[in-house]
Design a protein around this nucleic acid. Structure first.
Length: 274
DNA sequence: ACCCAGGGGCAAG
DNA sequence: CTTGCCCATGGG
């Protein structure tokens, strides 16, 4: 018995491998992971997903299969590099992630390579996450749990200087000082300001959360890769100027453009103007 | 050995 | 309001 989910304009492997989430594992043709506290197995067959029975609606929402991808792609910038990114990223979607999991994961991503962010995520899950029936990987540890873990034990997961940040941020969320769910009602600028109150969360990581967990598809996280790409388009500029440039030039789905550029730059190992 | 990684915080200009 | 420097750790 297998659940079926229609999934036009979607590439499961590409989406899971584009640096948005870090805990999914490919097993043959299947991808195994958890969405929140639910075990999910997904296999793509053309324009259809075969999923764990009962998770159809959850999967469709998580992978944002309702995003108007044709319209989003039609609005991409006309320059050669953006068009090359567009052509190489067919079916890549911006997912809807659980809020705390997204904020915490990107908090631990500062100055880390994608492979190591994954290792940290899996280690935190293994040591502090709740078991999920039917899944080898555990749920991302709740803020309440991480807030009570010693800095020493967090550092043992390879967190380095991020350990006290994660612990303190978890404490603020666990105490209710910051309500990540209630924040969803705020406008984007106010929401970003609130997220930046969390230790270890600055402009870039807040923008990751806005884009990947709050459906603010206009948000553009400017990391070292995107900075290189944008400088190739615009010339030398500060990070703030680069973000403003992308907002102005990429439009209401700037976050999508950013994600395609990020993935294309990493895979093609090329930059605009080369 | 050496360089870099999906940055943030803080002090100094 | 900007820039410079340090913060740990692992992979290429």
């Amino acid at each position: 018995m297998t659940g079926l989910v229609p999934a036009p304009d979607f590439d499961l492997g590409l989406t899971l491998g584009s640096g948005q989430v870090f805990h999914w594992t490919q097993v043959g043709r299947e991808w195994h992971g958890v969405i929140g506290a639910t075990a999910v197995r997904v296999e793509q067959r053309g324009d259809e997903l075969r999923v764990t029975p009962g998770t159809e609606a959850l999967v469709a929402r998580y992978f944002a299969l309702d995003h108007p991808l044709a319209a989003i792609r039609a609005g991409f910038p006309a320059d050669a590099y953006s068009q090359a990114a567009l052509a190489s990223c067919g079916g890549l979607r911006i997912m809807r992630q659980p809020r705390w999991e997204c904020v915490a994961t990107f908090l631990t991503s500062a100055m880390k390579q994608v492979a190591h962010i994954r290792a940290i995520s899996l280690e935190l899950r293994r040591k502090f996450g709740e078991p999920v029936a039917g899944s080898r990987v555990r749920a991302y540890p709740a803020a309440e749990r991480l807030a009570e873990v010693s800095e020493r034990r967090l550092r043992a997961c390879g967190l380095g200087f991020r350990a006290p940040h994660l612990r303190a941020a978890a404490g603020m969320v666990a105490s209710g000082e910051i309500d990540l769910e209630a924040l969803a009602g705020l406008g984007t600028a106010e929401l970003r300001t609130e997220l930046c109150r969390l230790p270890g969360v600055g402009r870039k990581i807040a923008n990751c959360a806005l884009l990947f967990a709050y459906e603010r598809l206009e948000a553009v996280p400017v990391d070292v890769w995107i900075a290189r790409v944008l400088r190739g388009m615009r010339g030398e500029a500060s990070l703030a100027e680069l973000e403003a440039y992308s907002a102005e030039r990429f439009g209401p789905y700037a976050g999508y453009v950013q994600q395609y550029l990020f993935h294309h730059a990493r895979v093609s190992k090329s930059l605009p103007g080369e």
